[in-house]
Design a protein around this nucleic acid. Structure first.
Length: 309
DNA sequence: TACCAGGCAATAA
DNA sequence: TTATTGCCTGGT
C-alpha cells in the first residue's frame, strides 16, 4: 500500500469532475453518479480515519482500490505499480498549487472555482477508452455515460478477477468493438452514437487511424487527426486531447462552459495569459459549475418561499 | 406531453 | 462558408 498527502488531490472531486467514468465510490449501487448519492446531498469530509471513503478504479486492465481520508489518500497496490502506472495516471508530479497561483488576483470567479475544486487533477487516461467514452458523452449525462460504458465492458471486455476476488471487466479493444454488429451496439442504449462507435472502431482496428502515431502528435495535429473519426467533432476531440493525451492547452467548450464564458467572460477567456494551462483551468470552471447547481438553487430560494430569478 | 442533455454529421441556404 | 435540423434514450 502507498499513501500520499492530499495536496491539491481529491479522489472524490476527480470522481465527480466528468473526465473519468470508471472511477466510483464503492459500496454504492451500480451506475450511481460519481461519489454522491442524490438523497445524501453534499459530501462531507470524513473526520476520523475510520470514516475513509473507498473508491474503485478500473483502468489499463487493472482494478485499483483507493481510500480517501482527511489528509491522505491510500492506494492498495505495490509500490512498483504505483510508480509505473498510478503516479502518472493521477499526474502526481505536477504542482497544481503553482497553476492556481497563476490566476489573476482580480479574477474572483476563477479564484473561487479553483479553490472549490482544488483537488481536481487532469488524468492521463487510455486513448482508445477516451475516444469511445467521449463519443458516448455527446448529448448525454454522466449517469448514462457510465451505464453505457459499463454495459460495453461487461459484454465485450475481458472478464478479470483481482487477488482478493473482485470481478471486473477490461475496456473492450478496438478489434472487439469493430466486430460488434450495429444492432448489438444499439442494444447497449448508445442510440445514434452506435454508428459512430462502430465506424470509429473499424477505423482504428484497420489501422486507418493510428493510436500510436496520435500519441506522438502535437495538439493541433492530434485534434485534426481525431476529427477524422466518425462522431468526433471539435468538442469531443478537445476532451480526448486533454484527458488522454494530457494536452493541457486544450479548452473544450460544452454547454456548461459556454454558459459560464458568456456570463463571466463576455470579452473572452484570457487564454493568452494562461497558455498551456487552459485545460486545467477549464476543468476547475466545469467542476465548479456542475457541482454548484444545487447549491445555487438553494441560495436562490428566498425565505418567503418564492424563487428569485 | 414535450422538451432537453456535457454534439455531431448531413443538408440547406 | 455558415446555419439549421434529425438523431437514440432517459429523465423531468
Amino acid at each position: 500500500m502507498i499513501s500520499v498527502a492530499k495536496e491539491n488531490f481529491s479522489i472524490r472531486q476527480i470522481c465527480d469532475s466528468g473526465q473519468c467514468f470508471r472511477l466510483r465510490k464503492l459500496n454504492q449501487p451500480a451506475h450511481e453518479t460519481g461519489s454522491i448519492k442524490k438523497e445524501e446531498g453534499r459530501w462531507k469530509e470524513p473526520k476520523e480515519a475510520a470514516e475513509a471513503e473507498r473508491y474503485g478504479l478500473t483502468a489499463f486492465g487493472r482494478f485499483l482500490e483507493i481510500e480517501e481520508r482527511q489528509n491522505e489518500i491510500t492506494f492498495h497496490c505495490e509500490e512498483e505499480e504505483f510508480e509505473q502506472i498510478w503516479k502518472g495516471y493521477f499526474d502526481l508530479e505536477e504542482d497544481y498549487g503553482k497553476i492556481i497561483a497563476l490566476i489573476d488576483e482580480k479574477d474572483d470567479y476563477l479564484l473561487r472555482a479553483a479553490a472549490f475544486g482544488s483537488g481536481v487533477r487532469i488524468l492521463r487516461q487510455d486513448l482508445w477508452e477516451m475516444i469511445v467514452s467521449f463519443i458516448i458523452s455527446q448529448q448525454n449525462n454522466i449517469k448514462r455515460i457510465r451505464k453505457c460504458i459499463d454495459y460495453l465492458c461487461e459484454r465485450y471486455g475481458e472478464k478479470r478477477k483481482t487477488q482478493s476476488g473482485i470481478v471486473y471487466y477490461d475496456f473492450p479493444t478496438p478489434k472487439a468493438l469493430s466486430d460488434v454488429s450495429l444492432e448489438d451496439l444499439y442494444a447497449c442504449n448508445l442510440g445514434y452514437r452506435s454508428r459512430y462507435i462502430h465506424e470509429t472502431a473499424v477505423s482504428i482496428a484497420s489501422g486507418q487511424v493510428d493510436l500510436k502515431a496520435l500519441r506522438a502528435m502535437a495538439y493541433e495535429e492530434a485534434k485534426t487527426e481525431l476529427m477524422k473519426l466518425h462522431g468526433v467533432g471539435v468538442k469531443v476531440a478537445e476532451c480526448i486531447c486533454l484527458f488522454a493525451l494530457h494536452q493541457t492547452q486544450a479548452f473544450p467548450v460544452d454547454t456548461h462552459i459556454h454558459k459560464v464564458l458568456a456570463k463571466q467572460y463576455p470579452e473572452g477567456f484570457p487564454v493568452q495569459r494562461y497558455k498551456g494551462y487552459e485545460g486545467t483551468l477549464q476543468q476547475y470552471i466545469f467542476y465548479y459549475d456542475i457541482m454548484s447547481v444545487s447549491e445555487e438553487s438553494m441560495l436562490a430560494y428566498s425565505t418567503n418561499g418564492e424563487w428569485r430569478s
